[in-house]
């Protein structure tokens, strides 16, 4: 399928950037004329992935978040959120609902939210290499 538009964003993994990242991606995806609900789905899943980079990926050093968003001619949006942080030992386990390695007030729902708010979620990760999360969401749009 043909890519009709692409954007890339590299930004510091700081919590103050969470709002900027989800709004930037949502604004870009808006070109596909999504419904309010579809747009909120994209915003929420991007927010989860970006927050994971900030909370989990870089416990010791300052790092960056690499975002690529692609829009396809058939109405598909594909957003990849990547870090070069510590990575995930067991991705299958990490994706289970309520699984969390963080204490405090993390609920372990991030991946469940991404999964249920998108059409397809792909997680690639390797300890020491980082984590790459791809969120695919088909935008039916207001017209349909």
């Amino acid at each position: 399928m043909q890519v009709i538009n692409e954007m890339k964003l590299v930004i510091d993994a700081l919590s103050v950037n969470e709002g900027y990242c989800r709004v930037a991606v949502a604004t870009f995806v808006s070109q596909l004329d999504p419904t309010i609900e579809e747009l909120n789905d994209v915003k929420t899943s991007v927010s989860e992935a970006v927050t994971n980079c900030i909370v989990h990926a870089y416990p010791k050093k300052r790092g960056k978040i690499y975002i690529t968003a692609r829009l396809y001619a058939d109405g598909l949006s594909r957003v990849t959120i990547k870090d070069r942080g510590i990575g995930i030992e067991d991705v299958k386990k990490a994706r289970e609902p309520l699984f969390t390695t963080a204490g405090g007030e993390r609920s372990g729902l991030g991946f469940s939210v991404m999964e249920s708010f998108s059409d397809k979620l792909t997680v690639r990760s390797k300890p020491g290499w980082g984590t790459s999360v791809t969120i695919e969401k088909r935008i039916a749009g207001k017209g349909k």
Binding site: T44, T51, G104, S107, G110
Partner: peptide
């Protein structure tokens, strides 16, 4: 707007 942080 609210993500899973709202649950926590």
């Amino acid at each position: 707007f609210m993500d899973s942080s709202g649950v926590g």
